[in-house]
Nucleic acid binder design. Sequence first.
DNA 1: GTGGTCTAGACCACA
DNA 2: GTGGTCTAGACCACA
Lengths: 125, 125, 125, 125
Amino acid sequence: MIVLDYKDSRPIYEQIIEKFRLLILKGILTPDTQMPSVRSLAMELSVNPNTIQKAYTELERNGYIYVVKGRGAFVAGDTGLMDEHRRECMAQISEAINQALEAGISAHDILAHTNGLLEKNGGSK
Amino acid sequence: MIVLDYKDSRPIYEQIIEKFRLLILKGILTPDTQMPSVRSLAMELSVNPNTIQKAYTELERNGYIYVVKGRGAFVAGDTGLMDEHRRECMAQISEAINQALEAGISAHDILAHTNGLLEKNGGSK
Amino acid sequence: MIVLDYKDSRPIYEQIIEKFRLLILKGILTPDTQMPSVRSLAMELSVNPNTIQKAYTELERNGYIYVVKGRGAFVAGDTGLMDEHRRECMAQISEAINQALEAGISAHDILAHTNGLLEKNGGSK
Amino acid sequence: MIVLDYKDSRPIYEQIIEKFRLLILKGILTPDTQMPSVRSLAMELSVNPNTIQKAYTELERNGYIYVVKGRGAFVAGDTGLMDEHRRECMAQISEAINQALEAGISAHDILAHTNGLLEKNGGSK
DNA sequence: GTGGTCTAGACCACA
DNA sequence: GTGGTCTAGACCACA
């Protein structure tokens, strides 16, 4: 279900958080689905249970999952995280564009670039 | 000349690299200008000289400065870094837009967002 | 009769205890009323019978219910639990106020706050 | 500087967080004071460094301290945590009073109780 | 020296 | 079985 990239410089627990974050935000993991247990996921990824624990704790703190003691961890219901994520995406676009402008790239070139990209990848919407 | 943000989570040496990189790319530091000496900059920033050394080594490795033994470090002449930097900027825009599309934001909304931004900030070019 | 909040971080057995404690203290459950059987309540709440058992054992230990072997559990008669509960309430007020004073809030502000609250919520008594 | 209570049922790392939180909120630890290092505090409290680490991570996340890589952790400047803490205190008073009202204690008795307490402990303010 | 990550493994409360 | 806490100890980047 999840694949780690050992060449990635980011810590393992962060990769795990990111992977689940996207699975949840994209709706692949739906609300109240049970997450794999800390131990089973640790086995599956050949990673220490503490590392998974850390990832789950973080995911819970940020509202992506909720934990029922003795039962396990479950995907949280929709709580506006989607919207927050979209806002973050827009902010990242803004930042990237502003940096490009600062680097002296013309507004015209940037627009051409984004247009091309959107035509290619943003078809159905 | 340079101000550090101790509350920034990025390592200090990286902040220093970034600051100089931008000063050079924007043409504020022109080719062959002498860089501050490792020791003086360390004093000025109240930072360990090892940290400055590491930043300079990295800047040299990436072609932003060149070092003359016994004389000091100097800003490198234009060597296509500008172009490379611009390419990086474009790549970052692409990545940000693709993430937005994955998050389910419509091409239309993204375009509106970038257009607005470019009209506001990208005027003169 | 009882609703559990799985997103509450407190253990389930504690939530159950608390719920019954209040039902009894408020007189909604009167002395000698039969409590739901461990099994039926476990079914109703979709919870492990062990969890209900633990809650009942605790309620009995604290004098809120009594258990007749083979018959079931029953609400205990009034045994001064009311007074004890009131003392606990007062103690909690004391603690909260002392913490506020330590935080540097003025006695005047605290008094205004409590007065306002009592006027609004403490009307009939 | 800090004393642990092994009889306290709360986890060690939480006790440590709470202790520092109060030291900072009361102004005993002033902004930019260096926190004891993870290792030294671990030794002093005869506790595993990981446990201290966990406490510091949490304190940083909540804005009580900031960490400079390779240098150490420092008390954060005033950032409205004080106000937030006071609001929490007020909320706790509200909750305690409402519970008391629900328990059937009269507004009159509660007021007498709080008045007495404030006269005794809230003198100077 | 400083904090950050991770492993290996134990013990606990809870269900 | 499930997550939560903790110890003992290693290794790393950073300063």
